[in-house]
């Protein structure tokens, strides 16, 4: 009877096993790299918008408050995208003939909404409410970054669950006085921990429930 395995079979098996293991490790590493890359998280990747609206100009140079446009942020889950009426309350007076604003003027004439590209898009199985965060002293720039320095807005955080939990488990490291929530220049002071613990008590932040599953997955 002829031999089933040829003399080089051992070498072939060894090479196959090693290649297989390397392949699996390679696939895992590639997946991790993709998962953490800006291609997947879109952190810092500015999106084109139908109107090239500059937050830097309006927030940093004109000092317009976040709430002027995102008006429902204090009382609703959704912060709110400004109506064309809001844009036109100024732009019916200034930059009347700017071609950059033609989309806005057309929307005002026709009643058709301006279409914006969404930047922050949580998975649908995550419940998020802006008003509770704003009212408990979580500042805009904690999640949205230095929007006042962005021409076109990009995502500032990857929105991993671990990142959410980091604050939900240790809110005292992040909360600030309510009146500083909309201050884009606010940075944690030296006594953040001490102040944070006081604010967690004062704002009745229920730390013991904050990392329960149902808080975000409901």
């Amino acid at each position: 009877m002829a031999q089933i395995f040829k003399p080089n079979a051992n070498a072939i098996i060894r090479v196959s096993i090693i290649t297989g293991i390397l392949l699996i490790i390679g696939i895992i590493l590639t997946m991790v790299a993709i998962y953490r890359s800006t291609y997947y998280t879109e952190v810092g990747v500015a999106k084109a918008q139908s109107v090239p609206f500059s937050h830097k100009h309006h927030v940093s140079e004109l000092k317009i408050d976040c709430r002027y446009c995102h008006a429902t942020v204090e009382r609703a889950a959704f912060a709110g995208i400004p109506t064309t009426d809001t844009c036109m309350s100024c732009h019916s007076q200034i930059w009347l003939n700017s071609p950059l604003l033609e989309t806005v003027r057309e929307s005002y004439r026709t009643g058709e909404p301006v279409q914006w590209s969404r930047i922050y898009d949580l998975p649908d199985f995550v419940y998020f409410n802006h008003s509770i965060h704003v009212n408990k002293g979580v500042g805009c720039n904690v999640c949205h970054g230095q929007v006042d320095q962005m021409q076109l807005v990009s995502q500032a955080q990857p929105l991993y669950m671990g990142w959410c939990l980091d604050c939900h488990r240790n809110p005292e490291q992040y909360v600030r006085p309510r009146e500083e929530v909309f201050n884009m220049e606010w940075a944690p002071p030296e006594n953040q921990l001490e102040m944070g613990r006081r604010l967690v008590q004062e704002y009745e932040i229920k730390v013991e429930n904050l990392s329960d599953c149902y808080i975000c997955h409901r």
Partner: peptide, 24 residues
């Protein structure tokens, strides 16, 4: 300060940052 200050100014003089720039 969120909704009025930009035009009417911090104390209501009508000299907010927007008013200072534009022909308003």
């Amino acid at each position: 300060n969120a909704f009025c200050m930009s035009c009417h100014g911090l104390v209501g003089d009508g000299d907010g940052l927007i008013a200072q720039r534009g022909p308003l």
